[in-house]
Design a binder for these strands. Structure first.
Lengths: 229, 229
DNA sequence: TATAAATGACTGACCGGTCAGTCATAATCA
DNA sequence: TGATTATGACTGACCGGTCAGTCATTTATA
């Protein structure tokens, strides 16, 4: 069933392939390179779908292959083994986040505004994409992949937290933030997002959650100004 | 290794057994009954340890048996199958929580105070106990056990949330809470706790987190009063 | 045609679940 | 009370299905 939609590539290409005029035109061929990259992506996409649905151990590489439209053996041309596939999947998907976040770091706008942008970023780039599933995977399987957890902490989390902390401290000193709770625990900023990811995975069919609204409400809390009573 | 400590029972008892004065005294003998209860608990404890360490699929019932100090077959005298064992484990551990929380519901103390008690309750009864691991299991494996998720939502979460919502609304109307964010999203109250559970599972070795402090700080945020500027 | 890529049948380890047999305990009897 | 029989909790070897990983063969490419 299921059948993966995105990452067009292999089968389709191979099928239509036939009538190609000549191997001319392109210098020689990184057609191969391109195709290989496509394969790789197809495998990663299929792996994400399967790992998300069943978890690491219960995922069958046969199914990943079928979903990617290739033979099982092919997977081993691109990845050393199942675990390696899993780890590269997570690395590939989460690494880009750091840059995006760090880009915001030095912007010199009111923190309040930055926070709103952060929420928007999270909703658009994580919650509404497959990255949400990757984070869920990280949460579920991470404890059994110490190496992966370490990578994630070192390369992603610690950087984000450091950036946030600096940012928030500045804001607190400027008086933009009344309470120093978030300065001491920057994790609090992400908390509603994490909870939303978990919630939708478990209970969406019983009660949906409006992530954006919840995160915005939370940001409001964090930035509550002392105002005349 | 490992060897479970609690739940003394079988072998030990059988060994010392010999010199019992007579089968007198006790009506007849539910020694058997008692032993059985012990077994059940031993299995559940072992299962929790193994499931926590490896996840549902990767857990071997052979290991559970070894850890509980029994033979594999014995597990099947107490639980229908692996899945059933898993589900009963979670039910058994989490069900008691509801009562405890609902007990707080109608107390007529300032909500602020109640919130502090809630934090304390969470830290003492969840975070510092094995229930923390059960919640982690629920988060990790829940998506693959719809029945379990449903049970948890219906029997535990929805009740807690309902109670919280009522409580918070009252407080908001009384002016004890300035911002209505938590009224609309009671999940926010639990968010730091959830995040702490996940964090410790993944990153404790890199950076510890002071749950109590974080939760208290967060509660402070939620209850920030408008004060003269 | 020579080389590289892809395939999928195959292997062997692994593990959930079973069940015939054992033995401590309970029940019955003398 | 001590001997005898009945019970059923417990055991662990075993079976059958599953699946990660391999590799001889086929297919596509230069």
């Amino acid at each position: 069933m299921a059948r993966i939609a995105q990452t067009r590539s292999p089968r389709g290409v191979a099928g239509t392939r036939r009538g190609r005029p000549a191997s001319a035109a392109r210098p020689s061929a990184n057609i191969r390179k391109v195709r290989q990259a496509g394969r790789r992506e197809a495998i990663l996409a299929a792996a994400l779908a399967e790992f998300s649905a069943r978890g690491f151990t219960a995922t069958r590489l046969d199914d990943v292959a079928k979903r990617a439209g290739i033979a099982k053996g092919t997977i081993y041309l691109y990845f050393r083994d199942k675990e390696s596939l899993f780890q590269e999947l997570i690395r590939t998907m989460l690494s880009p986040l750091v840059g995006t976040i760090e880009a915001l770091r030095d912007a010199d706008v009111p923190v309040r505004m930055l926070a709103d942008q952060l929420v928007e970023l999270f909703v658009r780039e994580v919650f509404l994409t497959r990255r949400k599933d990757v984070i869920r995977l990280m949460i579920s399987e991470g404890p059994r992949f110490p190496k992966l957890a370490e990578f994630y902490y070192r390369e992603v989390l610690s950087r984000i937290i450091a950036a946030l902390r600096a940012l928030l401290r500045r804001a607190h000193e400027r008086g933009e933030i009344a309470n120093d709770a978030v300065v001491r625990f920057p994790q609090l900023i992400a908390a509603p997002g994490i909870v939303a990811i978990i919630w939708t995975g478990l209970f969406d069919r019983f009660e949906t959650i409006d992530v954006r609204a919840m995160m915005k409400a939370h940001v409001d809390l964090l930035f509550t100004q002392r105002s005349a009573a």
